[in-house]
Write a protein that binds this DNA or RNA. Sequence first.
RNA 1: CGGGGCGUGGCGCAGCCUGGUAGCGCGCUUGUUUUGGGUACAAGAGGCCCCCGGUUCGAGUCCGGGCGCCCCGACCA
Length: 438
Amino acid sequence: MRLSRSFLPTLKETPADAQIASHRLMLRAGLVRQTASGIYAWLPAGLRVLRNIETIVRQEQNRVGAQELLMPTLQSADLWRRSGRYDAYGPEMLRIRDRHERELLYGPTNEEMITDLFGQVVKSYKDLPKALYHIQWKFRDEVRPRFGVMRGREFLMKDAYSFDQDYASAVASYQRMMLAYLRTFQRLGVRAVPMVADTGPIGGELSHEFLILAPTGESGVFYDAALEGQDWLAEPVDTDNHQALASFFDEVTSHYAATDEKHDEAAWDKIPVERRREGRGIEVGHIFYFGDKYTKSMDISVTGPDGTMIHPEMGSYGIGVSRLVGAIIEASHDDAGIIWPESIAPFRAVIINLKGGDEECDALCEKLYAAGPDALLYDDRKDRAGAKFADADLMGHPWQIIVGPRGAKAGLVELKHRATGERVEISPEEALKKVFAV
RNA sequence: CGGGGCGUGGCGCAGCCUGGUAGCGCGCUUGUUUUGGGUACAAGAGGCCCCCGGUUCGAGUCCGGGCGCCCCGACCA
């Protein structure tokens, strides 16, 4: 993308509405614009980040056998009456009437709809297990939206739902998702720690929240340092093998990790002091087993092995995709701006032409840019070097390829790494090689 | 939902108390200048002062009503 032709409105001054770092930076870096309280338009650069996150989420969901579909944003009230939640949900649900006075709602979640769809199709235990997911916009009419996209009313969410014939199989589905989540967050370039969450009336221990560690997080977190540095991408787990899944799950959950709500001082004290980690976290994912709550209330059943009807056991698994954009920035920025993890950055690098109009500079920049016009942002604006540097740091591209007249004459560019601030003078070819190295 | 605050060019703000022809910085346009971390100078463009009603000779300013948005708390993926 050529910056001169782009729709990337960076701001020098901080908009008055933005309080926390991620919100400020998202507005300043031209990722989003607010259109109503808690509702945002995603501008090109922001949308790229959103799509990059989606892609990783999608790949990891598919990898554990979940199938993608797409359910609508609007749902009928009747569907929700079947589970009893239409009246139970409260004012956070946005209720709408169409021209025929039919009652609709803008979906805050999709348990009812997926359960209904599942029931229409699956009739036998032989078709289980099934895991289905979609990535769709949701709406919750928060009393008080704030923190930009981290607590908006409209938000993009990946929600998956599993269906199993019995508890043991449901547990395996849950454990599979736990693995998918650990891999997903690792690939997103952030540390998200799974913490035991409240299971409410269901009971048991099959509910975990995933929290990204950031000083501005809404919850206090306590965890064992043993959970740091584990590489889920390098240690393959056979997700078809219940035994392998169980031992993986036991290993993860054997280490202490809890939010302040569930914090247990006694258990905490047993952890060696040097391994205790305490801080704040932002919830970006939640996995939950809830058994036959919906299959029962909506009367969805399949034929079991012995010919009797059974209500499948369900679990649901959410990832706040749009919220992640804000949360990742909270965890990864400095005074100058955003520091994108390479895996989700809107552009891999920005090419900074320090002297537009100079033949050698222009030619070298064009040559570099031709190596990947979609992955690279070319700052060809007729602006001063300082402004370009400031915008590059603000937008947080992992790499900056700086082309000036001196270097261009010598056939060299300067490559700056945003995260470390490290700069090297190297050939254009080497620079591109580094930028596109995975 | 309790408490507080704010709506004035694209952005950040002043003006309102004490009514009298709307101002500053940034950004934008044109020219000159500068050329490795938001350059300087000059000349410009751009405003239903959130909306409706009232008071007044006259309302951005005073009064009433409405709408929108933000912050603290409670709540929440």
